[in-house]
Amino acid sequence: MELLRQIDLTDLIRRALAEDLGQGDITTASTVAPGAQGRATIRVKEPRIILAGGVLIEQVMRLTGTNPRMTSLAPEGAQLKAGDTLAVIEGNLAGLLIGERTALNFVQLLSGVATTTRTYVDAVAGTRAKIIDTRKTHPGLRLVEKYAVRVGGGHNHRVGLDSGVLIKENHIAAAGSVTKAIQGAHRLAPHTLKVEIECETLAQVEEALGAGADAILLDNMPLADIHLARALAKSNVLLEVSGGVSLDTVRGIAETGVDLISVGALTHSARFLDISMRIQVL
């Protein structure tokens, strides 16, 4: 969970602060005495959250001139409930107030992603299936959102177009057929990259297997066809299911024996969780 400490997110945080701060915080400038010190306590107001992004609080406050001192911070991945203290941070009062919204925005979003992910992971417990994310992330936030998926117990699909081969229906149309698309990918891709192809029918699955696909994405297939695809692929080829996945359907999909279930909702529909910060003047 130390990943966010190892990635330089300074530019991302600066841009987030800049869109909020603009030319300056007029309210804080008019209400806070120069040099005043304060303590900020951040608490959870949800029945349950999986914390992600707490490690960004100090980084945000450092860039607002808070000269922060973290006196308490729950670990990443911790399960917290309403009333629990997530973090306590001390420093320059003006900096705490300037950074409040940006810091909370990161924690609320990333904890929402992690909590949603954990719900899906719990739903498939005991099966072979792994819950994975997609590239349906908010622009500019992909790395931190995919980090939050891992905090929640999920796994990452491609980070970007350069990190794997996934032939989709439009690529098949451009290449001319499933076989031609797979052959072209094998010619260009290094041996370290798996070649995955999206299939909408069992006929395409059979063609993909014959052409040497390393993995097959079953797109919006009914459960009966997913069962048949697993039988066709045996254990030699990774099977991923995508489309029509919800908490109501994910367990049944997992019980077909597929390896991966991709859920765009982990990132594109995660809810901001209710977390608040209260200030005490020191």
Results as ranks from 00 to 15, higher is better:
Met1Cys: 12
Met1His: 13
Met1Phe: 12
Glu2Gln: 14
Glu2Lys: 14
Leu3Met: 13
Leu4Val: 14
Gln6His: 12
Arg15Trp: 11
Leu17Pro: 01
Glu19His: 00
Gln23Phe: 15
Ser30Asp: 14
Val32Lys: 05
Val32Leu: 00
Ala33Gln: 11
Gly35Ile: 02
Ala36Pro: 09
Gly38Ala: 02
Arg39Tyr: 08
Arg39Phe: 06
Arg43Tyr: 09
Ala52His: 05
Gly53Arg: 04
Arg62Ala: 14
Thr64Gly: 08
Thr66Leu: 07
Met70Ala: 04
Leu73Gln: 11
Ala78Met: 10
Ala82Gln: 15
Gly91Tyr: 04
Leu96Gln: 03
Leu97His: 09
Leu97Val: 03
Gly99Pro: 05
Gly99Arg: 06
Glu100Gly: 06
Glu100Lys: 15
Ala103Asp: 10
Asn105Gly: 10
Phe106Tyr: 12
Val107Glu: 06
Gln108Val: 12
Gln108Leu: 10
Leu109Asp: 12
Gly112Cys: 00
Thr119Ser: 15
Tyr120Arg: 04
Asp122Thr: 12
Ala123Ser: 08
Val124Gln: 02
Val124Met: 05
Gly126His: 11
Arg128Cys: 13
Ala129Phe: 03
Thr134Val: 05
Arg135Leu: 05
Thr137Glu: 12
His138Tyr: 13
Gly140Asn: 01
Leu141Glu: 09
Leu141Arg: 04
Val144Phe: 11
Lys146Trp: 02
Val151Ser: 04
His155Val: 07
His155Ser: 15
Asn156Leu: 03
Arg158Ser: 02
Arg158Leu: 04
Arg158Cys: 02
Val159Cys: 11
Leu161Val: 11
Ser163Ile: 08
Gly164Tyr: 04
Lys168Met: 08
Asn170Gln: 00
His171Phe: 05
Ala175Thr: 01
Gly176Glu: 00
Val178Glu: 02
Gln183Tyr: 10
Ala185Met: 07
His186Cys: 11
Leu193Asn: 09
Lys194Pro: 12
Glu200Ala: 11
Thr201Phe: 05
Asn220Gly: 07
Ala231Met: 10
Ala231Ile: 10
Lys234Phe: 11
Ser235His: 12
Leu239Ile: 02
Leu239Lys: 00
Ser242Arg: 01
Val245Phe: 03
Val245Tyr: 03
Leu247Thr: 02
Asp248Phe: 13
Thr249Cys: 05
Arg251Cys: 12
Gly252Arg: 05
Ala254Asn: 03
Glu255His: 13
Glu255Ile: 10
Thr256Glu: 05
Gly257Val: 04
Val263Trp: 02
Leu266Lys: 01
Ser269His: 08
Ala270Trp: 06
Phe272Thr: 14
Arg278Asn: 12
Gln280Asp: 14
Leu282Gln: 15
